[in-house]
Deep mutational scan, measured.
Amino acid sequence: VNVKKLKVSELKEELKKRRLSDKGLKAELMERLQAALDDEE
């Protein structure tokens, strides 16, 4: 998943799939999702 190419709605969906908070600004969502993806690898 390329975090930078996702829309806010898509970021929120990806975060929900991982049971993460989907609250906050786009930058925060991107950071949170990227951290989750880094952990998965």
Score class of each variant (00 low, 15 high):
residue 7 K to C: 12
residue 17 K to A: 14
residue 13 E to K: 03
residue 18 R to D: 04
residue 26 K to C: 08
residue 3 V to K: 03
residue 20 L to Y: 05
residue 3 V to I: 07
residue 35 A to V: 09
residue 34 Q to M: 06
residue 8 V to K: 06
residue 30 M to R: 06
residue 40 E to P: 10
residue 21 S to P: 11
residue 40 E to S: 09
residue 20 L to G: 02
residue 33 L to Y: 05
residue 25 L to G: 15
residue 20 L to N: 04
residue 16 K to H: 09
residue 40 E to C: 04
residue 11 L to K: 01
residue 35 A to E: 13
residue 22 D to N: 06
residue 15 L to A: 02
residue 18 R to I: 03
residue 27 A to Q: 12
residue 10 E to I: 04
residue 28 E to D: 11
residue 36 A to G: 05
residue 18 R to S: 03
residue 31 E to A: 15
residue 26 K to F: 06
residue 20 L to S: 03
residue 40 E to W: 01
residue 11 L to P: 01
residue 17 K to I: 03
residue 13 E to Q: 13
residue 10 E to M: 04
residue 17 K to N: 07
residue 18 R to T: 02
residue 35 A to R: 13
residue 36 A to C: 06
residue 22 D to Y: 06
residue 25 L to T: 13
residue 17 K to L: 10
residue 21 S to Q: 05
residue 36 A to R: 07
residue 29 L to E: 12
residue 22 D to M: 05
residue 1 V to R: 07
residue 37 L to M: 03
residue 8 V to Y: 05
residue 15 L to C: 01
residue 27 A to D: 13
residue 20 L to W: 00
residue 12 K to R: 14
residue 39 D to V: 08
residue 20 L to F: 00
residue 21 S to L: 05
residue 34 Q to R: 11
residue 16 K to P: 01
residue 9 S to R: 11
residue 30 M to S: 05
residue 25 L to V: 14
residue 18 R to P: 00
residue 9 S to H: 06
residue 14 E to K: 00
residue 39 D to A: 14
residue 18 R to H: 00
residue 36 A to M: 03
residue 17 K to M: 13
residue 28 E to T: 10
residue 40 E to R: 06
residue 23 K to A: 15
residue 39 D to N: 08
residue 31 E to L: 06
residue 20 L to P: 00
residue 36 A to E: 06
residue 20 L to A: 03
residue 4 K to L: 09
residue 11 L to E: 02
residue 39 D to Q: 13
residue 15 L to W: 00
residue 33 L to Q: 11
residue 10 E to F: 01
residue 24 G to D: 02
residue 16 K to R: 14
residue 24 G to N: 00
residue 38 D to F: 06
residue 27 A to K: 15
residue 20 L to Q: 07
residue 9 S to K: 09
residue 13 E to S: 12
residue 19 R to E: 12
residue 22 D to R: 10
residue 2 N to K: 10
residue 29 L to V: 06
residue 27 A to I: 11
residue 28 E to F: 00
residue 30 M to Q: 05
residue 20 L to T: 02
residue 5 K to G: 12
residue 38 D to E: 01
residue 26 K to L: 11
residue 19 R to W: 05
residue 28 E to L: 01
residue 39 D to K: 12
residue 9 S to N: 01
residue 16 K to C: 08
residue 6 L to Q: 03
residue 4 K to T: 12
residue 2 N to L: 08
residue 7 K to F: 03
residue 35 A to H: 10
residue 35 A to C: 09
residue 22 D to H: 08
residue 37 L to K: 04
residue 24 G to C: 00
residue 39 D to C: 09
residue 38 D to M: 11
residue 17 K to W: 02
residue 40 E to V: 04
residue 36 A to S: 04
residue 35 A to D: 11
residue 8 V to A: 11
residue 35 A to T: 14
residue 41 E to W: 12
residue 40 E to A: 09
residue 3 V to A: 07
residue 9 S to L: 05
residue 10 E to C: 05
residue 11 L to M: 11
residue 30 M to N: 04
residue 31 E to R: 06
residue 31 E to T: 15
residue 10 E to W: 01
residue 39 D to L: 07
residue 19 R to L: 11
residue 37 L to W: 08
residue 9 S to W: 12
residue 17 K to G: 06
residue 38 D to H: 06
